[in-house]
């Protein structure tokens, strides 16, 4: 048998490696979709601040994964919850680590959400045509905070219990519906045997599901509408920019200030 040229051997290997990808692509078009998502066009002068949304997404995924693992050891029962938390922390191998990741990661997730929101606000990225994505974002913020609230009760120690009492009763001071919200959250007129499992179901099923769905919608809109350029970008979103007056030295940050107001400003 004649030896094949090394290059063709390599091509052969490459083709073999791509067989599963092709198999998938031929049947689902998924590979193309993922390529489209990952390699879509973004403005050339995109900014590091615009990675904060992806950072938030990463934090959410970390919470989801560590939460699933914690759920394998946690027991949502008034008589067992605290003991199961102690066991996770002290006895189960690496339990301290996963619990720590979930506990600290919760704060990281919320903080990143606010940073991301601040960047969207300061870049003016909430304006037409992205208002709807801001609204979806507000929904994510509310659900994210509620997720934190329901998770806080689960360790079932004194802090968890009384902080939840206070938090629930704050809801109770809302006009008209407040008392009903309290009773719905507590599953009764006081925190009782059903409260912890209700919070648990909200925390691990209802809210993550809703957040996941909204994230999907959020990202769909991001891809569909494209991300905004930074406000100092010379190529402002989609239309010709009015060039600032002759006094600008063209450092590209002109968009932050009205053209006229800049002349003669020290820099």
């Amino acid at each position: 048998m004649a030896r094949r040229a090394p290059s063709s051997r390599r091509q052969q290997l490459e083709r073999a490696a791509l067989v599963p990808v092709d198999w998938l692509e031929e049947r689902s078009g998924l590979a193309g979709g993922i390529k489209y998502f990952l390699f879509r066009k973004v403005p050339a002068d995109i900014n590091w601040m615009q990675t904060l949304g992806s950072a938030t997404l990463t934090a959410f995924i970390v919470q989801a994964v560590t939460g699933v693992v914690l759920a394998m050891y946690y027991k949502p029962d008034p008589d067992a919850a605290y003991a199961s938390i102690l066991r996770i922390t002290n006895d189960v191998t690496l339990g301290w680590l996963v619990r720590g990741m979930h506990k600290w990661g919760a704060s990281v997730f919320i903080i990143l959400m606010f940073f991301h929101m601040a960047r969207v606000f300061l870049f003016g990225a909430y304006k037409y045509p992205r208002e709807l994505n801001w609204i979806v974002g507000v929904g994510l913020l509310a659900l994210g905070l509620f997720e934190g609230f329901t998770g806080y009760l689960l360790p079932w120690d004194e802090t968890a219990y009384w902080a939840s009492v206070v938090g629930i009763n704050i809801n109770g001071t809302a006009p008209i519906l407040g008392p009903f919200i309290v009773q719905f959250l507590q599953s009764g007129i006081e925190i009782g045997e059903d409260t912890i499992s209700r919070f648990y179901a909200l925390h691990m099923l209802v809210l993550p599901g809703a957040i996941g769905g909204l994230i999907g919608l959020h990202l769909y809109l991001v891809v569909r509408l494209g991300v905004t350029s930074p406000p100092w970008s010379p190529e402002a979103a989609g239309r010709e920019r009015v060039e600032p007056g002759p006094s600008t030295n063209g450092n590209g940050r002109a968009g932050l200030v009205r053209p006229g107001a800049r002349s003669g400003a020290p820099r």
Binding site: R15, L18, V19, D22
Partner: peptide, 11 residues
């Protein structure tokens, strides 16, 4: 023609 992947895979 059935759609083919870029690398010519087929059933």
């Amino acid at each position: 023609e059935p759609k083919r992947g870029e690398h010519g895979s087929h059933v």
